[in-house]
């Protein structure tokens, strides 16, 4: 089957690079799957997992916190402010972050900026935990 090059790039350097059969991820508008030969496209992403289906039937997972996806005829690039591959995630830290964020959400007033921030932190933590456990 045909494959397409994928790279996940963050400000701290490239995180993932490989040839894959399919990229599936969550864009702002909904679940999105990219196969080789897709038309050029740009879409903003949600905090979520990027699933990359490899040629041998296995799949890799990368946790991204927002950013966007760029599709070119020969290449897919994901630009995110932070991204980790599933085996690089610090699970303990993510679990702690989830706890912290949950606590903060109970204390804070709704509508405040801190509340919104804690919400996002919680989303990121849950996303990391899910990706680390390869559940989705």
């Amino acid at each position: 089957m045909k494959t397409i090059k994928v790279s996940v790039v963050t400000p701290d350097g490239p995180v993932y690079e490989s040839d894959v059969e399919m990229v599936s991820t969550k864009a702002k508008t909904g679940e999105l799957g990219i196969l080789p030969g897709h038309i050029p496209m740009v879409a903003p992403l949600q905090i979520g997992a990027v699933r990359l289906k490899l040629e041998d039937g296995k799949s890799d997972m990368v946790a991204v916190s927002g950013g966007f996806l760029e599709v070119r005829p020969d290449k897919v690039t994901i630009l995110a402010q932070t991204a980790e591959q599933s085996d690089e995630i610090d699970l303990d830290r993510a679990l702690q972050a989830r706890e912290r964020a949950e606590k903060r959400l109970q204390e804070k007033q709704q509508e405040s900026i801190d509340f919104r921030r804690a919400e996002l932190a919680l989303q990121r933590a849950i996303n990391r935990i899910n990706v680390a456990n390869k559940q989705l």
């Binding site: 050029p40 903003p44 402010q81």
Partner: peptide, 22 residues
Amino acid sequence: TSYEFEPNAEEILEVLLPQYAE
């Protein structure tokens, strides 16, 4: 490249430009 935008150019700029400036 001329891209297809999902959902549209304005909303992408909304995400992209702050990220670019940062």
